[in-house]
Amino acid sequence: MEGFGGEGAAASPVSQRAHEAWRMYQYYLDKTTPHSVYRWIGTLVIAAIYCLRVYYIQGFYIISYALGIYLLNLLIGFLSPLVDPEIEITDGPLLPTKGSDEFKPFIRRLPEFKFWYSMTKAFCIAFVMTFFSMFDVPVFWPILLCYWIVLFVLTMRRQISHMIKYKYVPFNIGKQRYGGKKSSAGPSGSRAD
């Protein structure tokens, strides 16, 4: 089995180039990790380009519907906790159910970076699919749109009721500030000690 991995195995030039290209791709992907605002702006640009293409072609509605279902599935994973108290019983961190329970941080089932990456990949794949006429299945798009809206509303209602029941908010709104001791600073900004 020469050529299948191993220390002394000689790799073909094609596989070496593919590995180098993958490493370069992963390097730039890792460099984008801390720049979430720019990543999301880029994804919105890609989504706008896709929407404009579908609008001008007046087709590929079944691709758009499948993309919408996939994005809804990603959104549910992004809004859901890693450990669902209704389904799994574990010894790890759980969501607090009472005000007296200990605070446990919210850990997502689908982290933000993976959510962004999957969403961007989905828009790129859907965009490429619009160049092949075999994916342009004739459908009456208003029915697909109505069905997707009903599916979105029902799914979000279920997700929001789950959030209310287990008292968690899946978003970081910034540093929490609590009303504790007030500073005794006067109008001039100096403290009266």
Rank of each mutant, 00 (worst) to 15 (best):
T90H: 03
I87Y: 04
K104S: 15
I89N: 12
V139T: 07
F131R: 06
L94D: 06
T90E: 05
W116E: 06
M119C: 11
W148Y: 14
V139C: 05
P138T: 10
D101M: 07
C124L: 14
S100P: 00
W141R: 13
E86K: 12
P142F: 10
P96Q: 05
L95H: 09
F127M: 03
E86V: 04
F115Y: 12
V137T: 14
P111Y: 06
E102K: 14
S118R: 08
V128F: 10
I107E: 14
S133P: 02
K104A: 15
K121C: 10
P142T: 10
M119E: 07
P105M: 10
T90I: 09
T120I: 00
F103Y: 15
D84Q: 06
K121E: 08
Y117W: 09
V139Y: 02
Y147D: 11
F132R: 02
F123L: 01
W141I: 06
P85Y: 04
V137L: 15
E112C: 00
L94W: 02
D101E: 09
P142D: 07
R109C: 05
E86F: 03
F123D: 00
F135T: 08
V137Q: 09
Y117S: 11
F127R: 00
D91L: 11
P93V: 06
E86M: 08
M134G: 03
L95W: 07
L145K: 10
D84W: 02
T90P: 03
A126I: 03
F131C: 03
P111K: 05
I107S: 09
W148H: 15
D84K: 07
G99Q: 09
Y117T: 07
W141Q: 10
A126V: 03
K121S: 12
I125M: 08
R109P: 00
W116G: 05
K98S: 14
W148M: 13
S133V: 13
P138N: 13
E88S: 12
K114T: 09
A126P: 02
V137F: 15
R109Y: 11
E102Q: 14
C146M: 12
D136R: 07
W141C: 05
D101H: 08
W141L: 04
L94I: 08
M119R: 07
F113T: 03
W148G: 04
K114V: 06
Y147V: 15
Y147P: 00
T120Y: 05
L82D: 11
F131Y: 13
